[in-house]
Computed example of a mutant assay.
Amino acid sequence: MILPDGYSDVPAAKIAAVVTHLEMTAPPARRADPPGSWTLRKIDTPAPDWYRDIYRRVGEDWLWFSRARMSDTELAAIIHAPGIELYALAVDGRDEGLLELDLRQPGHCELVYFGVTGSLIGTGAARFLMNRTLELAWSRDVRRVWVHTCTFDHPSAVAFYQRSGFRPFHRQIEVADDPRLDGTAPRDAARHVPIIE
């Protein structure tokens, strides 16, 4: 459904974001790595507790909530599924970034989750992580790599993806229950998004 021009009502206790889908259909020119001491490691058979911790630390301020609402069984069914790959960006032995790739659809690679913790924003860590991401994605038999982001994410997210070689191809409005009102996220998370009860 295409929303008409003008205003559309959003009920109380809901959040609404513009979601931008971006893709690339050929490997982009490689960007130089910024200086830093980051490493990337593959996480085989991640424990749900590990996943929940890094997911929260990377995404809570951007209102990542869908995986936080899942039971351990539901979460494990996704993160242990064949074709799903998880990686951590590590700094001084501590995981501070998350990359989740979905390779289940032949010829396609989705960056399901991509991000670094707040202390690493602006340090070049995300560029390092994206460089590794694109190397991993395009080392497979794929013809398309894609990602989506929304207006709850960092304000530079769309521009960062575009600088990385992605181009927007689709936009949507997402409306959902505010995760801060049901305890999925703390009430003080994502202060840039007002709570409307």
Rank of each mutant, 00 (worst) to 15 (best):
M1H: 12
I2S: 05
I2H: 06
L3Y: 13
L3Q: 03
V10Q: 12
K14S: 13
K14G: 09
I15A: 10
A16R: 15
V19A: 10
T20I: 13
E23C: 11
M24D: 05
T25R: 13
P28L: 05
A29C: 00
A29V: 10
R30P: 03
R30F: 07
R31K: 12
A32L: 13
P35R: 14
S37T: 14
T39I: 12
R41T: 14
I43D: 03
I43K: 03
I43M: 09
D44S: 10
D49F: 01
D49P: 01
Y51M: 12
R52S: 00
D53T: 15
I54V: 15
D61C: 08
D61A: 12
F65D: 02
S66C: 05
S66G: 07
M70A: 08
S71D: 10
T73S: 12
I78E: 13
I79K: 00
H80F: 04
H80V: 06
A81P: 00
A81S: 12
E85K: 11
A88K: 01
A90V: 15
D92N: 14
R94Y: 07
E96N: 10
G97K: 11
L99W: 00
E100S: 03
E100W: 01
L101T: 05
D102T: 06
R104E: 10
Q105G: 11
G107K: 04
H108C: 12
E110F: 05
E110G: 00
V112Q: 10
V112M: 11
F114Q: 07
V116H: 05
T117R: 10
L120E: 13
I121Y: 04
T123V: 12
A125V: 02
R127F: 06
M130S: 11
N131I: 05
N131E: 06
T133C: 10
T133H: 03
E135N: 05
W138G: 01
R140Y: 01
R140Q: 13
V142C: 14
V145R: 00
T149P: 08
T149F: 08
F152Y: 11
H154L: 13
S156L: 14
A157T: 03
A159E: 15
A159I: 08
F160L: 09
G165P: 01
R167K: 15
I173E: 09
A176L: 07
A176R: 10
D177S: 07
D177N: 11
P179H: 06
R180T: 00
G183R: 00
T184C: 11
A185I: 06
P186V: 03
P186I: 03
R187A: 08
R187L: 05
D188N: 15
